[in-house]
Amino acid sequence: MAQWSGYLELILQGALVTLQLTVLGTVVALIMAFLGGLGRLSRHWWIRWLATGYIEFFRGTSIFVQLFWAYFVLPLFGIPLSPLQAGVLALGLNVGAYGAEVVRGAIQSVPKEQYEACTALNLTGWQRMRHVILPQAFVLMLPTFGNNAIELLKGTAVVSLISLSDMTFQAQVVRAQTGETALPFLTILLLYFVFSTAISTAIRGLERHLARGLDGTRS
Protein backbone atom coordinates (compact mmCIF):
# COMPACT_ATOMS: atom_id res chain seq x y z
CA MET A 1 0.00 0.00 0.00
CA ALA A 2 2.92 2.30 0.64
CA GLN A 3 3.83 1.68 -2.95
CA TRP A 4 0.35 2.53 -4.14
CA SER A 5 0.71 6.07 -2.83
CA GLY A 6 3.67 6.50 -5.19
CA TYR A 7 1.55 5.23 -8.06
CA LEU A 8 -1.29 7.52 -7.02
CA GLU A 9 1.13 10.39 -7.28
CA LEU A 10 1.89 9.34 -10.86
CA ILE A 11 -1.79 9.40 -11.67
CA LEU A 12 -2.22 12.79 -10.02
CA GLN A 13 0.65 14.15 -12.11
CA GLY A 14 -1.29 12.88 -15.11
CA ALA A 15 -4.40 14.56 -13.78
CA LEU A 16 -2.53 17.84 -13.80
CA VAL A 17 -1.69 17.36 -17.48
CA THR A 18 -5.32 16.51 -18.21
CA LEU A 19 -6.41 19.67 -16.43
CA GLN A 20 -3.89 21.75 -18.33
CA LEU A 21 -5.09 20.30 -21.62
CA THR A 22 -8.69 20.92 -20.68
CA VAL A 23 -8.22 24.52 -19.59
CA LEU A 24 -5.91 25.56 -22.44
CA GLY A 25 -7.92 23.57 -24.99
CA THR A 26 -11.12 25.25 -23.81
CA VAL A 27 -9.53 28.67 -24.15
CA VAL A 28 -8.50 27.89 -27.74
CA ALA A 29 -11.93 26.37 -28.41
CA LEU A 30 -13.69 29.48 -27.09
CA ILE A 31 -11.60 31.79 -29.25
CA MET A 32 -12.15 29.61 -32.31
CA ALA A 33 -15.86 29.29 -31.55
CA PHE A 34 -16.30 33.06 -31.55
CA LEU A 35 -14.08 33.59 -34.59
CA GLY A 36 -15.87 30.82 -36.48
CA GLY A 37 -19.36 31.76 -35.34
CA LEU A 38 -18.96 35.47 -36.02
CA GLY A 39 -17.19 34.62 -39.27
CA ARG A 40 -20.19 32.61 -40.44
CA LEU A 41 -22.30 35.75 -40.02
CA SER A 42 -19.86 38.16 -41.66
CA ARG A 43 -20.94 40.54 -44.39
CA HIS A 44 -17.92 39.47 -46.45
CA TRP A 45 -18.32 36.29 -48.45
CA TRP A 46 -14.69 35.29 -48.13
CA ILE A 47 -14.82 35.43 -44.32
CA ARG A 48 -18.00 33.35 -44.34
CA TRP A 49 -16.28 30.95 -46.71
CA LEU A 50 -13.22 30.61 -44.47
CA ALA A 51 -15.33 30.09 -41.36
CA THR A 52 -17.51 27.49 -43.06
CA GLY A 53 -14.41 25.71 -44.32
CA TYR A 54 -12.92 25.57 -40.85
CA ILE A 55 -16.12 24.33 -39.22
CA GLU A 56 -16.89 21.68 -41.81
CA PHE A 57 -13.34 20.43 -41.95
CA PHE A 58 -12.83 20.01 -38.24
CA ARG A 59 -16.24 18.50 -37.66
CA GLY A 60 -15.88 16.21 -40.63
CA THR A 61 -12.53 14.64 -39.76
CA SER A 62 -11.40 12.59 -36.81
CA ILE A 63 -9.79 14.10 -33.73
CA PHE A 64 -7.15 11.33 -33.91
CA VAL A 65 -6.09 12.33 -37.39
CA GLN A 66 -6.11 16.01 -36.41
CA LEU A 67 -3.89 15.24 -33.44
CA PHE A 68 -1.46 13.22 -35.58
CA TRP A 69 -1.31 16.08 -38.03
CA ALA A 70 -0.57 18.58 -35.31
CA TYR A 71 2.14 16.41 -33.80
CA PHE A 72 3.71 14.49 -36.67
CA VAL A 73 2.96 16.43 -39.86
CA LEU A 74 3.27 20.09 -38.85
CA PRO A 75 6.98 19.61 -37.96
CA LEU A 76 7.53 18.62 -41.60
CA PHE A 77 6.36 22.12 -42.51
CA GLY A 78 8.74 23.62 -40.01
CA ILE A 79 6.25 23.96 -37.16
CA PRO A 80 7.46 21.65 -34.42
CA LEU A 81 5.03 21.43 -31.52
CA SER A 82 5.47 19.91 -28.10
CA PRO A 83 3.00 17.13 -27.30
CA LEU A 84 1.10 19.52 -25.02
CA GLN A 85 0.95 22.23 -27.70
CA ALA A 86 -0.20 19.72 -30.30
CA GLY A 87 -2.85 18.39 -27.93
CA VAL A 88 -4.16 21.84 -27.05
CA LEU A 89 -4.23 22.86 -30.70
CA ALA A 90 -6.03 19.76 -31.94
CA LEU A 91 -8.56 19.67 -29.11
CA GLY A 92 -9.16 23.43 -29.27
CA LEU A 93 -9.67 23.51 -33.02
CA ASN A 94 -11.87 20.44 -32.96
CA VAL A 95 -14.17 21.51 -30.15
CA GLY A 96 -14.07 25.13 -31.38
CA ALA A 97 -15.64 23.99 -34.65
CA TYR A 98 -18.64 22.62 -32.76
CA GLY A 99 -18.72 25.72 -30.58
CA ALA A 100 -18.80 27.97 -33.64
CA GLU A 101 -22.18 26.60 -34.63
CA VAL A 102 -23.40 27.23 -31.08
CA VAL A 103 -22.21 30.84 -31.26
CA ARG A 104 -23.86 31.36 -34.63
CA GLY A 105 -27.13 29.79 -33.50
CA ALA A 106 -27.25 31.82 -30.29
CA ILE A 107 -26.55 35.09 -32.07
CA GLN A 108 -29.24 34.34 -34.62
CA SER A 109 -31.77 33.53 -31.95
CA VAL A 110 -31.61 37.03 -30.44
CA PRO A 111 -34.86 38.56 -31.73
CA LYS A 112 -34.53 40.87 -34.71
CA GLU A 113 -36.32 43.57 -32.72
CA GLN A 114 -33.16 43.90 -30.63
CA TYR A 115 -31.17 44.63 -33.78
CA GLU A 116 -33.77 47.17 -34.85
CA ALA A 117 -33.67 48.94 -31.50
CA CYS A 118 -29.92 49.30 -31.99
CA THR A 119 -30.38 50.78 -35.44
CA ALA A 120 -32.92 53.24 -34.05
CA LEU A 121 -30.35 54.21 -31.40
CA ASN A 122 -27.74 54.62 -34.13
CA LEU A 123 -25.28 52.08 -32.75
CA THR A 124 -22.65 50.79 -35.17
CA GLY A 125 -22.60 47.11 -36.10
CA TRP A 126 -19.77 46.40 -33.70
CA GLN A 127 -21.35 48.33 -30.79
CA ARG A 128 -24.57 46.43 -31.38
CA MET A 129 -22.77 43.09 -31.29
CA ARG A 130 -20.63 43.95 -28.30
CA HIS A 131 -23.19 45.61 -26.04
CA VAL A 132 -26.54 44.18 -27.03
CA ILE A 133 -26.42 40.96 -29.04
CA LEU A 134 -23.47 39.05 -27.55
CA PRO A 135 -24.42 39.57 -23.89
CA GLN A 136 -27.84 38.11 -24.62
CA ALA A 137 -26.53 35.37 -26.89
CA PHE A 138 -23.83 34.36 -24.41
CA VAL A 139 -26.44 33.25 -21.87
CA LEU A 140 -27.89 30.98 -24.54
CA MET A 141 -24.48 29.56 -25.44
CA LEU A 142 -23.46 28.67 -21.90
CA PRO A 143 -25.21 25.31 -21.43
CA THR A 144 -23.85 23.92 -24.69
CA PHE A 145 -20.44 25.41 -24.00
CA GLY A 146 -20.50 23.47 -20.73
CA ASN A 147 -21.23 20.26 -22.59
CA ASN A 148 -18.49 21.03 -25.09
CA ALA A 149 -15.97 21.61 -22.31
CA ILE A 150 -16.87 18.23 -20.84
CA GLU A 151 -16.52 16.62 -24.27
CA LEU A 152 -13.12 18.24 -24.49
CA LEU A 153 -12.16 16.91 -21.08
CA LYS A 154 -13.13 13.40 -22.14
CA GLY A 155 -11.34 13.87 -25.44
CA THR A 156 -8.05 14.72 -23.74
CA ALA A 157 -7.36 10.98 -23.38
CA VAL A 158 -6.43 10.83 -27.06
CA VAL A 159 -3.17 12.62 -26.33
CA SER A 160 -1.79 9.47 -24.76
CA LEU A 161 -1.39 8.40 -28.40
CA ILE A 162 1.33 10.99 -28.88
CA SER A 163 2.86 9.84 -25.58
CA LEU A 164 1.75 12.82 -23.56
CA SER A 165 1.49 11.57 -19.99
CA ASP A 166 -2.05 12.57 -19.13
CA MET A 167 -4.21 10.82 -16.59
CA THR A 168 -5.17 7.93 -18.88
CA PHE A 169 -1.58 7.41 -20.00
CA GLN A 170 -0.39 7.30 -16.39
CA ALA A 171 -3.07 4.82 -15.42
CA GLN A 172 -1.75 2.50 -18.10
CA VAL A 173 1.77 2.98 -16.84
CA VAL A 174 0.68 2.03 -13.35
CA ARG A 175 -1.19 -0.96 -14.70
CA ALA A 176 1.87 -2.13 -16.61
CA GLN A 177 4.14 -1.73 -13.61
CA THR A 178 1.88 -3.26 -10.96
CA GLY A 179 -0.32 -5.65 -12.88
CA GLU A 180 -3.15 -4.00 -11.02
CA THR A 181 -6.01 -3.06 -13.34
CA ALA A 182 -9.12 -2.17 -11.40
CA LEU A 183 -7.61 0.28 -8.95
CA PRO A 184 -5.84 2.69 -11.38
CA PHE A 185 -8.77 2.75 -13.74
CA LEU A 186 -11.26 3.24 -10.95
CA THR A 187 -9.14 6.16 -9.75
CA ILE A 188 -9.11 7.93 -13.09
CA LEU A 189 -12.80 7.19 -13.62
CA LEU A 190 -13.54 9.05 -10.41
CA LEU A 191 -11.17 11.87 -11.29
CA TYR A 192 -12.78 12.39 -14.72
CA PHE A 193 -16.14 12.44 -13.01
CA VAL A 194 -15.01 14.99 -10.43
CA PHE A 195 -13.61 17.24 -13.15
CA SER A 196 -16.72 17.09 -15.30
CA THR A 197 -18.93 17.73 -12.29
CA ALA A 198 -16.81 20.75 -11.44
CA ILE A 199 -17.23 22.07 -14.98
CA SER A 200 -21.00 21.65 -15.06
CA THR A 201 -21.39 23.15 -11.59
CA ALA A 202 -19.34 26.18 -12.56
CA ILE A 203 -21.34 26.66 -15.76
CA ARG A 204 -24.65 26.37 -13.93
CA GLY A 205 -23.50 28.94 -11.40
CA LEU A 206 -22.48 31.32 -14.17
CA GLU A 207 -25.79 30.74 -15.93
CA ARG A 208 -27.76 31.60 -12.80
CA HIS A 209 -25.63 34.67 -12.25
CA LEU A 210 -26.12 35.97 -15.78
CA ALA A 211 -29.78 35.05 -16.06
CA ARG A 212 -30.81 37.11 -13.04
CA GLY A 213 -33.57 39.50 -14.01
CA LEU A 214 -33.36 38.38 -17.61
CA ASP A 215 -36.48 36.24 -17.92
CA GLY A 216 -38.53 37.21 -20.94
CA THR A 217 -35.93 38.23 -23.49
CA ARG A 218 -38.52 40.18 -25.46
CA SER A 219 -38.69 43.01 -23.03
Binding site: E113, A117, L123
Partner: peptide
Protein backbone atom coordinates in the same frame (compact mmCIF):
# COMPACT_ATOMS: atom_id res chain seq x y z
CA UNK B 1 -34.41 60.48 -35.89
CA UNK B 2 -35.62 58.39 -32.96
CA UNK B 3 -38.27 55.69 -32.83
CA UNK B 4 -40.45 54.08 -30.20
CA UNK B 5 -41.76 50.61 -31.02
CA UNK B 6 -45.03 48.87 -30.37
CA UNK B 7 -43.27 46.13 -28.35
CA UNK B 8 -40.79 48.47 -26.56
CA UNK B 9 -37.69 46.47 -27.60
CA UNK B 10 -35.83 47.36 -24.41
CA UNK B 11 -32.51 45.62 -23.79
CA UNK B 12 -33.42 42.88 -21.28
CA UNK B 13 -29.91 42.42 -19.92
CA UNK B 14 -29.51 46.07 -18.97
CA UNK B 15 -31.11 48.08 -16.20
CA UNK B 16 -33.56 50.86 -16.93
CA UNK B 17 -30.82 53.44 -16.45
CA UNK B 18 -28.35 51.54 -18.66
CA UNK B 19 -31.00 51.24 -21.36
CA UNK B 20 -31.17 55.03 -21.46
CA UNK B 21 -27.44 55.80 -21.13
CA UNK B 22 -26.06 53.17 -23.54
CA UNK B 23 -26.57 55.02 -26.81
CA UNK B 24 -25.49 58.49 -25.59
CA UNK B 25 -22.29 57.01 -24.19
CA UNK B 26 -21.55 55.00 -27.33
CA UNK B 27 -22.71 57.29 -30.10
Amino acid sequence: IGMVFQLFNLFPHKTVLENVTLAPILT
